[in-house]
Computed example of a mutant assay.
Amino acid sequence: MFGAHAAKRARTDDHYASSSTTRSDIWHSDGSLVLQAGTTLFRVHWSVLSTHSTVFKDMHSTPQPNLSGPTVEGCPVVELHDDPLDLENVLRVLYDPTIFLQQEHKFVLVASLVRLGRKYNFRTLWKAGVGILETAIPTTLDQIDMLRENNYQVKGIINHPGLFVDILGLLRENDILTLLPCAYYLVIERYSMRELFDGVARGDGTTATLAPEDLRQCMLSRDTIIRHQCEAGYSCAWALSAPASTPGLVRTGNVCSNIAACTAMRASYMSRFMRHPSLLPASPTSTQFIWRYGFCASCREGVVATIKAGRTKGWEDLPGFFDLAPWSELKNEE
């Protein structure tokens, strides 16, 4: 491919200069090869690509047969089966790493770093893309509490409607398993059923939609989480338990001072829960909620303790709700 004669080069130059291709503004006059993605051409340097990518390094070092392959301005053309925007984003970062100094990045840039970073073993770019995602997606209960307090405005990525849907698809596509449980959870918590099925308008005329397998997982897991809420050990277990009428039935060992009222409060909460099921493994304990329901001091302390323990258990079990391995076993495949 890379040993074309001058006459052949002239012919292929004419071909690639035709209206069927477009030159990107990433066009270095001293570049040593031309990358083609779709109908877009990029003139770059073997040295730059080889320094950062073992795939391009191996490609460059492999002897090529003396065939009259296509060239542009004397440079061999390497056709890549990638989205031109992904390639453009990666090349811009390679030639201008100061882009990483920005506090926030567009999701499309992060996606490009992850996709092509993994495909061509741009190891530094892969790590950078995953690092930005790790900044955006919580991996602890405290972090998800902070995200909710911040109205789901993530750090590191410029927010747009449907962002969590886009992130979930990227994580699944590239086996970034460490972030998957929380990404799934944020999708089913943040978006309505209609949005899950019909997609979320991003605001630029496009729609963020779940892949069929992700939609199926979200629906099954949402049902599983709701059904687990009131089971022993989880956040809403208190609502199906009777107030302690004898010592030792609550953590404090105290008895309920108003069994009729506290029983009614539990029934009232369950009635509300049945109408509006919540997803509590990652929701913070609400002091206002406890006081609003008017429990006696003993029951109030018991409810707070149950919710706190249930949140911890819910978070520990979160991967399993989405048919994933436990937290300790989740690894990212590069």
Rank of each mutant, 00 (worst) to 15 (best):
F2D: 14
F2E: 14
H5W: 02
A6Q: 03
K8T: 05
R9Y: 01
A10Q: 12
A10T: 06
R11E: 15
D14I: 15
H15L: 12
Y16Q: 09
Y16P: 06
A17I: 01
S18Y: 14
S24T: 02
W27N: 07
S29R: 08
G31D: 00
S32H: 03
L35N: 04
S50F: 02
D58P: 13
H60C: 12
S61I: 11
P63E: 03
P70V: 05
P76S: 07
E79K: 13
N89H: 15
L91S: 07
V93N: 05
L94F: 11
Y95K: 02
K106V: 04
K106L: 09
V108I: 03
L116H: 04
F122C: 11
R123Y: 13
K127M: 09
G131R: 10
L133N: 05
T135Y: 01
P138S: 01
T139K: 06
I144S: 10
I144M: 09
L147Q: 04
E149W: 07
E149A: 15
V154N: 11
K155C: 12
G156A: 03
P161L: 08
L163S: 06
V165N: 13
I167P: 11
L168W: 06
G169Y: 09
L170Y: 08
L170C: 06
L170A: 08
E173F: 01
T178R: 02
Y184H: 15
I188M: 11
Y191V: 09
M193G: 14
E195F: 07
L196A: 04
V200A: 13
A201H: 07
A201P: 05
G203R: 13
T209S: 14
P212E: 08
R216V: 05
Q217E: 11
Q217H: 03
C218W: 05
C218G: 08
I225K: 04
A237I: 00
W238V: 01
A239W: 06
A239K: 08
P243M: 04
A244V: 01
S257M: 00
I259R: 12
A261S: 09
A264D: 01
R266Y: 04
P277C: 08
P277E: 05
P281H: 08
A282R: 00
P284S: 13
S286K: 00
Q288N: 06
G294L: 08
F295Y: 15
C299I: 06
C299K: 01
V304C: 00
T306D: 06
T306N: 12
A309T: 09
W315N: 14
E316R: 15
D317M: 07
P319V: 13
D323K: 15
W327Y: 11
S328H: 08
L330N: 04
K331N: 12
N332F: 01
E334G: 12
